[in-house]
Amino acid sequence: MGLKITIIGKVHDVGYRLFLLELADLLFIEKFDARNVKINGKEAVVVLVDGDEGQLNEFVEMVKSEKPEMAVVEEIKVEEYKGRIRDIERFRASFNTVQLSKIVQVGLQMLQKQDQMLQKQEETIKEIRATREELKKEIREVSSKLDKTNELLERRFERLEEEIERIKKALIKAGIEL
């Protein structure tokens, strides 16, 4: 006796098919298939199982009472199924291939993002170096201006000191004591 179980809700990309495979393994169910589909625009997992009545009843009860942590189940439909259902080992092999393919795609995307980040990092380093060179140039210019200002101030102070000395001498010559 086969069953078709349709689980509707937030059931894609939450590990639902792997979760169902683990339940089927736990109950030694030999015929199993699970597919992610859309039904009327909603996410769904369609599960096909075949085994003895006790296994199937227990499987249905577990499906109704348990779910992956991130899943949100809105509805579960259970109906008889008379078509062919593949062997659980064939499902596992196919499922593993699909999952490995997803892992490879994610890995490639991560490498691409890493390359983009490294490129941005290189651009940022170039900008930092250019800014540092501009700052060094500005510091040299400011330092040069400070040196010139210091020279001018030193000459003015020397002249002021010379004039103060002349004024003192003139005052003393005029008989004014300081």
Rank of each mutant, 00 (worst) to 15 (best):
G41Y: 04
G175V: 00
F95Q: 02
K168G: 11
Q119A: 15
F19K: 01
F59R: 00
T124A: 15
V106D: 13
V37M: 04
E154Q: 12
G9Q: 01
D33E: 10
F28A: 13
R166E: 15
L18C: 09
R156Q: 14
M117S: 14
R166F: 11
K64I: 05
S144R: 03
E127N: 13
D13V: 05
E151D: 15
D13I: 03
Q119D: 14
I128Q: 08
R166T: 03
V60H: 01
L118V: 08
R159H: 13
Y16H: 01
E163T: 08
K169N: 15
V78N: 02
Y16K: 03
E79K: 05
E79Y: 06
F95N: 01
Q109R: 14
K113N: 15
I125L: 13
G54W: 06
G51Q: 03
V14W: 03
V72I: 10
M62G: 08
R155T: 09
T97P: 00
V72C: 06
S94G: 10
E138A: 08
K4M: 10
K136L: 14
K169R: 12
Q99Y: 06
Q105E: 15
A44F: 02
I85V: 07
R90I: 02
V60W: 00
R155Y: 14
R17F: 05
E141V: 07
R129C: 08
V63P: 00
V49T: 05
L48P: 00
R17M: 07
Q55R: 01
E79S: 11
L146K: 12
D87T: 03
I7F: 06
E133C: 04
I88L: 02
L18D: 15
E158T: 08
I7K: 03
R35S: 15
E177N: 08
V11R: 00
E158D: 14
N36K: 00
E141M: 08
G54S: 11
I172S: 10
L48G: 03
Q121K: 10
Q109S: 15
L3T: 06
I8N: 01
V37N: 03
F19N: 02
S143N: 05
Q114W: 06
Q112G: 10
L171H: 07
E74K: 09
K4E: 15
Q119K: 14
K148T: 08
K102C: 09
R156E: 13
M70H: 13
G83R: 02
K77L: 12
M1K: 03
